[in-house]
């Protein structure tokens, strides 16, 4: 089965991101495809490239990146939700005259249309909210 996830909880603030990640790992372990994870609302903080959690806690950002590297899962971040929360990739940082960027590949800033598309084109869209 082809799965997509919608993650709306901030990492470390609520369980949503942790649950989404564990679900994602279970999906691929069971031989299903996880094509897309879409981050919206406070879920966009999962894409923060400067996140530095304590070493004895799971590193959510690294875990999402591993999912992308090993299974080709696309990591899509709502651009409108991201920009107002200070999450900008290099292009947006330069466009807005910011001194640095906070999002980098494999996370991609994209529009909400991609969420709708993901919902319609996959067998299942599973939402993880706080």
């Amino acid at each position: 089965m082809r799965y997509a996830l919608l993650v709306q909880g901030a990492p470390y603030s609520s369980q949503a991101s942790h649950s989404a990640l564990r679900f994602a790992q279970a999906v691929v372990a069971r031989g299903h495809r996880l094509d897309t994870v879409f981050f919206y609302h406070d879920g966009v903080y999962n894409a923060a490239r400067l996140a530095a959690p304590p070493q004895d806690e799971p590193h959510l950002g690294d875990a999402w990146r591993a999912l992308h590297n090993e299974h080709g899962t696309e990591l899509l971040v709502c651009i409108a939700a991201a920009l107002r929360r200070g999450l900008l990739d290099e292009r947006e940082a330069s466009r807005h005259g910011k001194p640095g960027h906070s999002v980098e590949p494999p996370f991609e800033l994209t529009g909400l249309g991609q969420l709708v598309e993901a919902g319609l084109s996959h067998d299942r869209l599973i939402t993880f909210s706080p």
């Binding site: 919206y40 409108a80 939700a81 909400l112 249309g113 709708v116 598309e117």
Partner: peptide
């Protein structure tokens, strides 16, 4: 909270995409 605004945004975008 921004839940309502962001939920409505999703609805508008989907409608704009012809859904």
């Amino acid at each position: 909270s921004s839940w309502l605004r962001e939920g409505l945004d999703a609805a508008l975008v989907a409608a704009a995409f012809g859904q």
